[in-house]
Nucleic acid binder design. Structure first.
Lengths: 209, 209
DNA sequence: ACAGTACCTGCATTCAGTGCAGAAATACAA
DNA sequence: TTGTATTTCTGCACTGAATGCAGGTACTGT
């Protein structure tokens, strides 16, 4: 996941390295001292850069928690582009959203787990997460509309993507509130999948075109 | 809409009055100078209270734009409570959401119009709006689940409400982006209403329960 | 090695938001 | 009305995020 892509010059590699150490330092400090009690100055110091310089890497403290939000959207867009001529919009969308992990997949690494916790606990972080989600939604909808010009206008595409993302988000929200203890991920996932399939049944069945 | 409810003592009436003049002053100043360039100190001064005191009326600058977010949720909850025994969850939910105006109703007063504009233009405001929406969603879902214990568990209710709100929001978003010029409110409103009905159509046809 | 460009950094500044402590206003009982 | 308890207001001092600026530093391509 962390790629010091070759083919960059010194400057860019250095920049990527520093960016990564900012994320690492922040993860460490947020876990140890809490989000609010960690200052941007602390993080910058831990990564050995000036406080001022921090803001040329991340536009705000919250951004530290979403360092690769673009990849996910890109993955979804690619999935739409790589559709089969036989596919319906819904099928393509389901596949695309599965790739982005619609907000709930990787409980694997520390950052993802931390992010999930802070989204619940810190309003500023939740606000940022929702904005990123909305942006992603809009981009995906735009691409979907373009991919199926015969079957979807832009408004319908917006509604469709909104419904899917909303259903998953709504379900995940409840599940996470109900499980302060870490009820194992498998079970969590299947609960969400069942709920969303109920909520979205109307969209799934109608083969509307 | 603005009620200096009787039956309050002097203190409470005074407080309500000051609160209202804060909202008024803010509306005025935001329109005149822009959101970013209006400081909390300006607003407090315009309403004749100390800067510090402002924060005992509103927890943040953004809150000024959402002074009655509770009424809307309450209306939806009431609509759920007032359901007919024959109703399906979907029917009740549609009625409830129509009441809250799912984010787009009153293009009538200045504050509402301003809010709509600032949600698009100012990230901090958009973030707050999304949080309020999510909160509302969760409350409505909780009540819906309680109202239909046989047909919905809490997770399914979350998914259903999320899907509805997501669909409407997604559709409305597209419509509003398509109208950068102030296409007069009437037209916007009808466009939004059409978008909403498009978004909800999939659920309206199937009589699933 | 050199010039040109991009980046880093400290300093000063603005503004949102909080804690505190004393002054002011209001409620309530007698 | 008066006096007392309680709530609310307000200035002051402070923290911390974020931005503009100006000069220094480091990398690039030739």
């Amino acid at each position: 996941m962390v790629r010091y892509d070759v083919g960059m010059n010194l400057r860019d590699r250095k920049r990527a390295r520093i960016r990564q150490s900012l994320v690492d330092a922040a993860t460490e400090l947020f876990e140890r001292d809490g989000y609010e009690r960690t200052t941007v100055a602390d993080i910058a110091a831990a990564a050995d850069i000036g406080t001022r310089t921090f803001f040329s890497y991340f536009a705000s403290k919250e951004e530290l928690l979403f360092p690769e939000s673009d990849y996910r959207v890109q993955a979804a867009v690619d999935a739409i582009a790589a559709r089969d001529p036989e596919d319906t919009p819904v099928e393509v969308l389901v596949r695309a959203l599965h790739l982005t992990g619609a907000d709930s997949d990787d409980l694997t690494d520390r950052l993802a787990a931390l992010r999930l916790r802070l989204i619940r606990e810190v309003p500023a972080v939740r606000g940022r997460a929702l904005q990123i989600q909305l942006d992603a939604q809009q981009q995906i909808a735009a691409h979907l509309a373009e991919a199926f010009p015969e079957q979807l206008d832009r408004v319908k595409a917006g509604a469709l993507v909104g419904a899917f993302v909303g259903a998953v988000t709504g379900a995940v929200q409840v599940v996470m509130d109900d499980m302060p203890a870490h009820h194992d991920p498998k079970e969590l996932r299947s609960a969400v999948e069942e709920a969303t399939s109920v909520a979205l049944r109307p969209w799934m069945t109608t083969r509307s075109r």
